[in-house]
Design a binder for these strands. Structure first.
Length: 364
DNA sequence: CATCAGTAGATCG
DNA sequence: CTTAACTGATCTACTGATGG
């Protein structure tokens, strides 16, 4: 058996304030003014959230996910733009297509992030990898007028944290012998998968930095956070991540959620919007030739509590009419569980399979 | 106990 | 003047049922 190369060269490329930067680029007259990209729901003037904040807006405390009213208080002078996903996707695709020629393998992680494995291309040499990646970074700036931050290290975990370490337009290399030095002082929130919940949970145990996690025992971590997260944090705090890049990463589910203009109470109120979502999800999956065996609906109440219903089919959903009917009955089921004011609704599909086989022999 | 179905929870940008 | 205002998408863990 051939052994895999012991040392990998893995990079993470992260577009800086991607959506806001794209919008900023279209408006040179804005100079360095704060730019905010919002998801406006239309239920009131300022209803919605920030999708992306330029760095000058971030300096004033604005963050993605923040309610628009709050962002406006923090940053009254910002230029606002409505989010335009289709445009960002096109640009993302153009940029990351170029990355392929700089690497052995590329994994597209999201609309604004990608991993690149340069182990072979750079012959195991960090400085060779760095040269290539700096060239890519310069290219992105020159061709698209956009900046990105790059992290280079020995695996995806550390590379991602490295790209985060200096932003915007950063370039951070973490050599194999520097991994602990790099990770130890970071707050645990810097780890992928550690959000406010886990952070608070561990803060109660006196754990705030990655070094603190490294010093904690595996059994304690598992006791506090469960098997999956405990094991993950134990390894992550040591910078251990053997996961290879996945060049064919595919979505495991697809959903569409909308906020209603006004809270609704009954099926008749929401039926038209649900049917719109069904149309949308059906066309989006059909377009990609995706068939699915699981489907579900969700609703978010005016108090922001989530409700959902889902079911599995034994055979992939065959027609839009069947899909629509299934979604409708799930929604009716959901509404009879408990009365609540509906603020947002969604339709979800998963369990993707290849298209059902055409009948052949038995047709004759 | 391995797997599956259904649901709630957490994270991310 | 005061108050409340909060998207959209995905992935994963947990729980209970089922079958070997």
């Amino acid at each position: 058996m051939s052994s895999p190369p012991s040392l990998r060269l893995i990079a993470h490329i992260d577009m800086d304030a991607f959506f806001a930067s794209v919008e900023q680029r279209k408006h040179p007259e804005w100079g360095n003014d704060p730019v905010l990209v919002g998801v406006f729901t239309g239920r009131s003037e300022d209803s919605g959230v920030v999708s992306s904040a330029s760095y000058s807006a971030r300096k004033m405390g604005v963050r993605a996910g923040m309610p628009i009213f709050q962002a406006k208080n923090l940053c009254p002078s910002a230029h606002w733009v409505s989010v335009n996903h289709a445009e960002y996707s096109t640009i993302s695709e153009q940029i990351f297509t170029r990355l392929f020629s700089f690497a052995d393998v590329v994994e597209l992680a999201s609309i604004d992030e990608a991993y690149a494995d340069l182990s072979i291309k750079a012959k195991g040499d960090f400085s060779a990898a760095e040269s290539l990646l700096r060239e890519f970074q310069t290219l992105v700036k020159k061709e698209w007028g956009l900046s990105c931050s790059v992290g280079l290290s020995v695996n995806k975990l550390v590379a991602k944290m490295a790209s985060d370490a200096r932003k915007p337009a950063g370039f951070t290399v973490v050599h194999p012998d520097e991994v602990s030095m790099f990770l130890d002082p970071l707050p645990i929130k810097a780890l992928l998968g550690v959000g406010p919940k886990t952070r608070d949970e561990l803060k109660e145990k006196g754990i705030e930095t990655i070094l603190d996690i490294r010093r904690a025992g595996l059994s304690d971590l598992v006791k506090w956070l469960g098997t999956a997260k405990g094991n993950y944090l134990f390894a992550a705090s040591r910078g251990i991540d053997a996961a290879p890049l996945d060049p064919n990463r595919e979505r495991k589910q697809h959903s569409r959620i909308v906020t209603l203009l006004q809270d609704a109470q009954s099926w008749t109120d929401v039926a038209p919007r649900v049917h719109d979502l069904v149309e949308l999800v059906w066309s989006e999956t059909a377009e990609k030739g995706q068939f699915f065996t699981q489907l579900g609906v969700l609703a978010i109440s005016s108090s922001l509590k989530q409700y959902s219903k889902s079911k599995s089919l034994t055979v992939p959903c065959a027609t839009k009419e069947q899909f629509s009917g299934e979604i409708e009955s799930l929604f009716l089921l959901l509404l009879e569980t408990e009365p609540f004011l509906i603020r947002r609704i969604g339709v979800r599909v998963s369990g993707f399979t290849a298209p059902p086989k055409q009948k052949r022999l038995f047709d004759f």
